[in-house]
Amino acid sequence: MKINQISVFLENRAGQLAEVTKLLSDNHINLRAISIAETADYGLLRIIVDDSQKATSVLLENGNIVTMNPVIVVAVDDQPAGLSELLSLLTETDINIQYMYALFTHQAGKAYMVFRTEEEQAFVALLDKHGLSAATADELGLK
């Protein structure tokens, strides 16, 4: 059920992101989700890839600063209000979502959202309670 997200420190200069994506492509690692948070001086790249162990070692070997954290991926209906309904469930709880972004999939009718929270168990329980479930690595084709 646990899906690993890799975060990479990016200095704010031309070509930094391209270096990371090239490194991944050279090693036949497929990007499944990507998000960037940035300040004036640096960026924080967050990715989900098909082989997180391999991606982490490749990135580390090439001098990158990397951290791996578990995230929860949830499928919502790919239609108006799909995400909104899920988020409204969260507003009634104390679960704090640090950040979220979308994941690319090919499954018709579904959109996948990536959530980062310190309160994973509570979040999963909430999903269960409402007949939803967190996507598994298998389901997303991740190792």
Binding site: S7, A37, L44, I65, T67
Partner: peptide
């Protein structure tokens, strides 16, 4: 220079 010890996936923690 950024180090693995300081780095986090949370922008808030780094700032």
């Amino acid at each position: 220079e950024m180090t693995p010890e300081i780095f986090s996936d949370s922008l808030g923690k780094i700032t």
